[in-house]
Simulated assay, not measured.
Amino acid sequence: MITMSRQLEELGYRKYECESCGNTFWSIRERRTCGDAPCDEYDFIGNPATSRSYDLYEIQDEFIGFFAERGHEPIRRYPVLAKRWRDDVFLVGASIYNFQPWVTSGLVKPPANPLVVAQPSIRLNDVDNVGRTGRHLTCFTMGGHHAFNSEDNTVYWEEETIKYCHEFMTHIGIDPSEITFIESWWQGGGNEGPCYEVCVRGVELATLVFIQYRTLPDGGREEIPLKIVDTGYGLERFAWISQGTPTAYDACFGPVIEKLLELTGVEINEEI
Protein backbone atom coordinates (compact mmCIF):
# COMPACT_ATOMS: atom_id res chain seq x y z
CA MET A 1 0.00 0.00 0.00
CA ILE A 2 1.38 3.38 -1.04
CA THR A 3 0.98 6.30 1.38
CA MET A 4 3.75 8.63 0.16
CA SER A 5 1.54 11.33 -1.35
CA ARG A 6 2.29 14.53 0.58
CA GLN A 7 5.61 15.28 -1.12
CA LEU A 8 4.15 14.64 -4.57
CA GLU A 9 1.24 16.96 -3.79
CA GLU A 10 3.68 19.66 -2.65
CA LEU A 11 5.55 19.32 -5.95
CA GLY A 12 2.29 19.80 -7.86
CA TYR A 13 1.47 16.17 -8.74
CA ARG A 14 -2.05 14.76 -8.69
CA LYS A 15 -3.29 11.16 -8.65
CA TYR A 16 -4.81 9.50 -11.73
CA GLU A 17 -5.76 6.00 -12.92
CA CYS A 18 -4.35 4.76 -16.22
CA GLU A 19 -7.20 3.99 -18.60
CA SER A 20 -5.01 1.40 -20.36
CA CYS A 21 -3.44 -0.71 -17.57
CA GLY A 22 -5.47 0.46 -14.58
CA ASN A 23 -2.42 1.41 -12.49
CA THR A 24 -2.52 4.39 -10.14
CA PHE A 25 -0.03 7.10 -11.05
CA TRP A 26 0.87 10.71 -10.26
CA SER A 27 1.38 13.48 -12.79
CA ILE A 28 1.66 17.27 -12.77
CA ARG A 29 -0.49 17.60 -15.89
CA GLU A 30 -3.80 15.87 -16.42
CA ARG A 31 -3.36 12.71 -18.49
CA ARG A 32 -5.13 9.45 -19.27
CA THR A 33 -2.19 7.03 -19.39
CA CYS A 34 0.60 6.27 -16.94
CA GLY A 35 3.65 7.14 -19.03
CA ASP A 36 5.12 3.65 -19.30
CA ALA A 37 5.17 1.32 -22.31
CA PRO A 38 2.97 -0.09 -23.78
CA CYS A 39 0.43 2.43 -22.46
CA ASP A 40 2.56 5.22 -23.94
CA GLU A 41 4.88 5.03 -26.93
CA TYR A 42 8.50 6.18 -26.83
CA ASP A 43 8.13 9.90 -27.45
CA PHE A 44 11.78 10.93 -27.17
CA ILE A 45 13.23 9.24 -30.27
CA GLY A 46 14.46 12.06 -32.47
CA ASN A 47 13.23 14.45 -29.77
CA PRO A 48 15.48 14.15 -26.67
CA ALA A 49 13.85 14.58 -23.27
CA THR A 50 16.76 16.39 -21.57
CA SER A 51 18.33 19.80 -22.08
CA ARG A 52 21.62 18.29 -23.32
CA SER A 53 23.01 15.00 -24.58
CA TYR A 54 24.87 12.60 -22.24
CA ASP A 55 26.83 9.48 -22.99
CA LEU A 56 26.79 6.70 -20.39
CA TYR A 57 29.90 7.92 -18.58
CA GLU A 58 28.72 11.53 -18.49
CA ILE A 59 25.32 10.68 -17.01
CA GLN A 60 27.01 8.40 -14.47
CA ASP A 61 29.26 11.25 -13.35
CA GLU A 62 26.28 13.63 -13.28
CA PHE A 63 24.30 11.21 -11.10
CA ILE A 64 27.13 10.57 -8.64
CA GLY A 65 27.99 14.27 -8.43
CA PHE A 66 24.38 15.31 -7.87
CA PHE A 67 23.97 13.07 -4.85
CA ALA A 68 27.47 13.69 -3.51
CA GLU A 69 26.60 17.40 -3.34
CA ARG A 70 23.58 16.41 -1.26
CA GLY A 71 25.45 14.51 1.42
CA HIS A 72 25.74 11.04 -0.12
CA GLU A 73 29.15 9.39 0.06
CA PRO A 74 30.16 7.82 -3.27
CA ILE A 75 31.32 4.22 -2.87
CA ARG A 76 33.08 1.95 -5.34
CA ARG A 77 31.09 -0.54 -7.35
CA TYR A 78 30.85 -4.08 -6.00
CA PRO A 79 31.86 -7.19 -8.00
CA VAL A 80 29.04 -8.59 -10.15
CA LEU A 81 29.52 -12.06 -8.65
CA ALA A 82 27.14 -11.84 -5.70
CA LYS A 83 27.89 -15.49 -4.88
CA ARG A 84 30.94 -14.17 -3.01
CA TRP A 85 28.72 -12.92 -0.16
CA ARG A 86 25.29 -14.44 -0.88
CA ASP A 87 24.14 -18.03 -1.15
CA ASP A 88 20.79 -17.38 -2.85
CA VAL A 89 21.89 -15.71 -6.10
CA PHE A 90 24.91 -15.86 -8.39
CA LEU A 91 24.95 -12.42 -10.02
CA VAL A 92 24.27 -8.87 -8.83
CA GLY A 93 20.96 -7.78 -10.30
CA ALA A 94 20.63 -4.40 -8.56
CA SER A 95 22.62 -2.16 -6.25
CA ILE A 96 20.65 -3.35 -3.18
CA TYR A 97 22.15 -6.82 -3.77
CA ASN A 98 25.42 -5.38 -2.47
CA PHE A 99 23.91 -5.04 0.99
CA GLN A 100 21.79 -8.18 1.24
CA PRO A 101 21.60 -10.00 3.57
CA TRP A 102 24.25 -8.67 5.97
CA VAL A 103 23.52 -4.94 5.95
CA THR A 104 19.76 -5.18 5.36
CA SER A 105 19.43 -7.56 8.32
CA GLY A 106 21.23 -5.11 10.61
CA LEU A 107 24.15 -7.46 11.31
CA VAL A 108 26.72 -5.31 9.46
CA LYS A 109 26.89 -1.52 9.16
CA PRO A 110 26.65 -0.05 5.63
CA PRO A 111 29.89 1.26 4.08
CA ALA A 112 28.37 4.78 4.23
CA ASN A 113 25.01 6.23 5.17
CA PRO A 114 23.62 7.70 3.01
CA LEU A 115 25.58 6.50 -0.02
CA VAL A 116 25.53 6.66 -3.80
CA VAL A 117 26.89 4.05 -6.21
CA ALA A 118 26.95 3.27 -9.93
CA GLN A 119 26.63 -0.50 -9.84
CA PRO A 120 27.05 -2.78 -12.89
CA SER A 121 24.18 -5.26 -12.78
CA ILE A 122 23.33 -8.38 -14.76
CA ARG A 123 19.79 -9.60 -15.39
CA LEU A 124 18.86 -12.54 -17.58
CA ASN A 125 15.16 -12.79 -16.71
CA ASP A 126 14.33 -10.39 -19.58
CA VAL A 127 16.76 -11.91 -22.06
CA ASP A 128 13.97 -12.61 -24.58
CA ASN A 129 13.36 -8.85 -24.79
CA VAL A 130 16.98 -7.93 -25.51
CA GLY A 131 17.24 -6.58 -29.05
CA ARG A 132 13.46 -6.33 -29.39
CA THR A 133 12.27 -3.50 -27.15
CA GLY A 134 15.26 -1.19 -27.57
CA ARG A 135 15.48 -0.74 -23.79
CA HIS A 136 16.35 -4.16 -22.36
CA LEU A 137 19.98 -5.09 -21.65
CA THR A 138 21.59 -8.10 -20.01
CA CYS A 139 24.20 -5.88 -18.31
CA PHE A 140 23.39 -2.34 -17.24
CA THR A 141 24.57 0.31 -14.80
CA MET A 142 22.22 0.98 -11.90
CA GLY A 143 22.62 4.32 -10.20
CA GLY A 144 21.50 3.90 -6.62
CA HIS A 145 21.26 6.23 -3.67
CA HIS A 146 20.58 4.40 -0.41
CA ALA A 147 19.78 5.33 3.17
CA PHE A 148 19.59 2.91 6.08
CA ASN A 149 17.26 4.12 8.81
CA SER A 150 17.25 2.59 12.30
CA GLU A 151 15.42 3.50 15.49
CA ASP A 152 18.34 5.60 16.71
CA ASN A 153 19.42 7.01 13.32
CA THR A 154 16.88 8.39 10.86
CA VAL A 155 18.68 9.52 7.70
CA TYR A 156 15.81 10.19 5.29
CA TRP A 157 12.77 8.35 4.00
CA GLU A 158 9.88 8.79 1.59
CA GLU A 159 9.55 12.54 1.15
CA GLU A 160 13.25 13.23 0.64
CA THR A 161 13.61 10.32 -1.79
CA ILE A 162 10.78 11.55 -3.99
CA LYS A 163 12.13 15.11 -3.87
CA TYR A 164 15.67 13.96 -4.78
CA CYS A 165 14.32 12.06 -7.79
CA HIS A 166 12.24 14.97 -8.99
CA GLU A 167 15.17 17.37 -8.54
CA PHE A 168 17.65 15.13 -10.39
CA MET A 169 15.36 14.76 -13.37
CA THR A 170 14.68 18.48 -13.60
CA HIS A 171 18.40 19.14 -12.99
CA ILE A 172 19.24 17.39 -16.27
CA GLY A 173 16.49 19.26 -18.07
CA ILE A 174 13.51 16.91 -18.08
CA ASP A 175 10.20 18.79 -18.15
CA PRO A 176 8.40 18.01 -14.84
CA SER A 177 5.09 17.74 -16.71
CA GLU A 178 6.47 14.68 -18.53
CA ILE A 179 7.37 12.76 -15.34
CA THR A 180 4.97 10.19 -13.88
CA PHE A 181 5.23 8.25 -10.62
CA ILE A 182 3.44 4.88 -10.85
CA GLU A 183 2.45 3.20 -7.58
CA SER A 184 3.72 -0.37 -7.28
CA TRP A 185 5.27 -2.97 -4.97
CA TRP A 186 8.84 -4.33 -5.12
CA GLN A 187 10.13 -7.70 -3.89
CA GLY A 188 13.58 -9.25 -4.22
CA GLY A 189 16.48 -10.81 -2.34
CA GLY A 190 14.32 -11.60 0.67
CA ASN A 191 13.01 -8.06 1.16
CA GLU A 192 10.07 -6.02 -0.08
CA GLY A 193 8.17 -2.78 0.21
CA PRO A 194 6.07 -0.19 -1.63
CA CYS A 195 7.66 1.65 -4.53
CA TYR A 196 7.23 4.17 -7.30
CA GLU A 197 8.21 3.44 -10.91
CA VAL A 198 9.26 6.75 -12.44
CA CYS A 199 8.63 7.16 -16.17
CA VAL A 200 9.21 9.74 -18.87
CA ARG A 201 7.77 9.59 -22.39
CA GLY A 202 7.05 5.88 -22.44
CA VAL A 203 10.10 4.47 -20.64
CA GLU A 204 10.73 3.66 -16.98
CA LEU A 205 13.86 5.47 -15.80
CA ALA A 206 13.96 4.80 -12.06
CA THR A 207 12.35 2.85 -9.23
CA LEU A 208 12.09 4.24 -5.70
CA VAL A 209 11.66 1.40 -3.19
CA PHE A 210 10.97 1.73 0.53
CA ILE A 211 12.07 -1.57 2.04
CA GLN A 212 10.21 -2.31 5.25
CA TYR A 213 9.72 -6.08 5.27
CA ARG A 214 11.43 -9.43 5.09
CA THR A 215 9.78 -11.92 2.75
CA LEU A 216 8.94 -15.16 4.58
CA PRO A 217 9.29 -18.65 3.06
CA ASP A 218 5.51 -19.09 3.04
CA GLY A 219 5.07 -15.89 1.01
CA GLY A 220 4.11 -13.74 3.96
CA ARG A 221 6.16 -10.85 5.30
CA GLU A 222 7.37 -9.46 8.58
CA GLU A 223 8.59 -5.98 9.47
CA ILE A 224 12.35 -5.48 9.76
CA PRO A 225 14.13 -3.10 12.16
CA LEU A 226 15.81 -1.16 9.35
CA LYS A 227 13.82 1.02 6.97
CA ILE A 228 15.88 1.16 3.76
CA VAL A 229 15.71 3.60 0.87
CA ASP A 230 16.52 1.48 -2.18
CA THR A 231 16.57 3.37 -5.46
CA GLY A 232 17.55 2.23 -8.93
CA TYR A 233 18.16 4.62 -11.82
CA GLY A 234 18.77 3.01 -15.23
CA LEU A 235 21.69 5.12 -16.41
CA GLU A 236 21.74 3.62 -19.91
CA ARG A 237 18.12 4.69 -20.32
CA PHE A 238 18.95 8.21 -19.17
CA ALA A 239 21.69 8.35 -21.81
CA TRP A 240 19.17 7.05 -24.34
CA ILE A 241 16.44 9.62 -23.70
CA SER A 242 19.05 12.40 -23.65
CA GLN A 243 20.27 11.46 -27.14
CA GLY A 244 16.94 10.45 -28.67
CA THR A 245 18.49 7.57 -30.61
CA PRO A 246 16.29 4.74 -31.96
CA THR A 247 17.45 2.33 -29.21
CA ALA A 248 19.43 2.33 -25.97
CA TYR A 249 22.05 0.25 -27.79
CA ASP A 250 22.74 3.11 -30.19
CA ALA A 251 23.14 5.51 -27.28
CA CYS A 252 25.51 3.33 -25.25
CA PHE A 253 27.31 1.16 -27.81
CA GLY A 254 27.26 3.40 -30.88
CA PRO A 255 30.85 2.74 -32.09
CA VAL A 256 30.40 -1.02 -31.65
CA ILE A 257 27.14 -1.00 -33.63
CA GLU A 258 28.71 1.08 -36.40
CA LYS A 259 31.58 -1.41 -36.69
CA LEU A 260 29.19 -4.37 -36.79
CA LEU A 261 27.17 -2.72 -39.56
CA GLU A 262 30.37 -2.06 -41.48
CA LEU A 263 31.51 -5.68 -41.16
CA THR A 264 28.15 -7.26 -41.97
CA GLY A 265 26.70 -4.83 -44.49
CA VAL A 266 23.38 -4.86 -42.63
CA GLU A 267 21.12 -1.84 -43.08
CA ILE A 268 18.93 -0.72 -40.17
CA ASN A 269 15.37 0.46 -40.58
CA GLU A 270 15.27 3.13 -37.89
CA GLU A 271 11.48 3.59 -38.23
CA ILE A 272 10.94 0.05 -36.93
Rank of each mutant, 00 (worst) to 15 (best):
R237M: 03
G65F: 10
R76Y: 12
I172E: 01
T50Y: 04
L216N: 05
M142G: 02
L56K: 00
D61L: 08
I211M: 12
E30Y: 13
D87Y: 15
E19W: 15
W26K: 05
R77L: 12
T170H: 03
Y13D: 01
Y164N: 01
D152L: 14
Y57L: 10
T3R: 11
C139W: 14
E10Y: 10
Y249M: 06
K109M: 11
N125L: 08
F90D: 07
P176W: 05
V229E: 00
F148P: 00
I28V: 03
S105L: 08
G219A: 15
G131D: 06
V229M: 02
F181V: 13
T3K: 02
A118E: 02
P74R: 02
L261R: 13
G46A: 06
V200K: 00
I28R: 04
A147Y: 01
H146N: 12
V229I: 10
D88F: 15
L208Y: 05
A118P: 01
T50P: 04
V155Y: 03
F148S: 07
Y233V: 01
I272T: 15
L56Y: 03
V229P: 02
S150L: 11
G46L: 13
I211W: 05
E159Y: 04
E204I: 05
F238I: 07
A49I: 09
C18K: 04
G35R: 06
P114M: 08
Y156Q: 14
F67V: 02
R76M: 07
P246C: 10
R32Q: 12
A118Q: 02
G106I: 14
E69F: 08
R214H: 15
E10Q: 09
T138M: 14
F168E: 01
Y213R: 04
L216P: 03
G65D: 11
A206D: 00
E262W: 08
F44S: 00
N153F: 14
P176I: 06
H145T: 13
N47I: 12
V127R: 05
S53K: 13
F67K: 03
R86T: 15
D61H: 07
V130T: 01
D43N: 11
L124W: 08
E204R: 06
P38N: 07
P101I: 12
P120I: 07
S53T: 10
